[in-house]
Design a protein around this nucleic acid. Structure first.
Lengths: 189, 189
DNA sequence: TATGATGAGTACGGTAACGTTTCGATGGAG
DNA sequence: CTCCATCGAAACGTTACCGTACTCATCATA
């Protein structure tokens, strides 16, 4: 976006509040996510928050929606390396950004709030798109058997990375990406 | 910590409180998990809670620890059906018990409390054991190539089920277990 | 049956977030 | 330059949870 566009008074405060909301969620989790805490962090008035968002849940939705950024779609000509690029980028996201902690809080929230659950499902769908694009392209090129469902392949390829980070709560070993691809992408010898 | 037959006075209240703690966590998540709420639900006095647990975190740890129950280890003679039994049981756990909602809350809590993180890692390890047992037995029988790491296989087999439930937030299709096994356990036709 | 533990119920002062309101300051548009 | 929508700050009464303390009932056992 053209950064020199003047940021209107209202939009400026809005952006600061959204950024502060993510910081609070990252630091203190869902428990610490209150209107007061976000207002403090943003250097904003509570009145401003309530002017823009009726509830803390609505604010949370906007804040999480603002975090989304799709991974760039690689095009090396080979499924294998395309997928490897994507998964490696994703591991970086999991290990070196606030993303996973935000997601952990959000997953819990989405269990109990239907509006958050909807957004969560939508964000997940958008997050999967680059990988699905790569797989579809591979199928068009004949590099991938047509009896393999791209949706299930996407599950199988990305799930272990999530699992390591959120469930096993352990670092992701460097060879995991390679191993996952080897098992799932059917490079059978 | 007295006898085994009669439930000593103390142990009775303790069990009721732990059960109430899980109900509160299931219904209201981490946000609603307070000493007062648990005491109310248990029909117990706050003083009783504080007598047994110094903090809400300590109570949460004991409550989550009490939920753990290992899946029975099947022994059909074939890796394939053994694994299928285990994964199917696990899907039932994910779809028809409070387990996943409890876990969602716990994962968020474990992101910020080291003691909870330790317990989380330990519970995950114990949950994996039946599958690891089955895989080890298969290897001893020569039904499984020795160059496949059982730990990674366990990741690949269970991760998609977690993923569907927590990340994709979608029902687990009946054929997913079969598909996962087909891809991961290398029964290539 | 007498006694010591244990628990339920209640009350307490302290803290924090709630959601709303008022007021004075400020910056962008006409 | 003027106007006015928007902002930050502060105060408000309300509600909820905190952690502790005290009383009285109940059960376990010797």
């Amino acid at each position: 976006m053209a950064g020199s566009q003047p940021i209107s008074r209202g939009a400026g405060a809005r952006r600061r509040v959204l950024a502060a909301a993510l910081q609070v969620l990252d630091d203190d989790g869902l428990t610490g996510f209150t209107m007061e805490a976000v207002a403090r962090r943003a250097g904003a008035s509570k009145a401003t928050l309530y002017r823009h968002w009726p509830t803390a849940g609505a604010l949370l939705i906007d804040a999480m929606d603002a975090t989304f950024q799709p991974l760039p779609v690689p095009d090396t000509g080979h499924v294998h390396s395309d997928v490897e690029h994507l998964l490696t980028s994703f591991v970086t996201l999991l290990e070196h950004t606030p993303f996973p902690r935000l997601l952990a809080a959000f997953i819990d929230a989405a269990e109990r709030d239907p509006a958050l659950a909807d957004l969560h499902a939508d964000l997940t769908r958008r997050r999967r798109e680059p990988l699905l694009t790569v797989l579809a392209r591979a199928r068009d090129r004949g590099q991938l058997s047509t009896d393999l469902d791209p949706e299930i392949l996407t599950d199988l390829l990305t799930a272990p990375l999530f699992y390591r980070r959120f469930v096993a709560h352990q670092p992701i070993p460097p060879q995991l990406v390679t191993e996952v691809i080897r098992h799932v992408l059917a490079t059978r010898r």
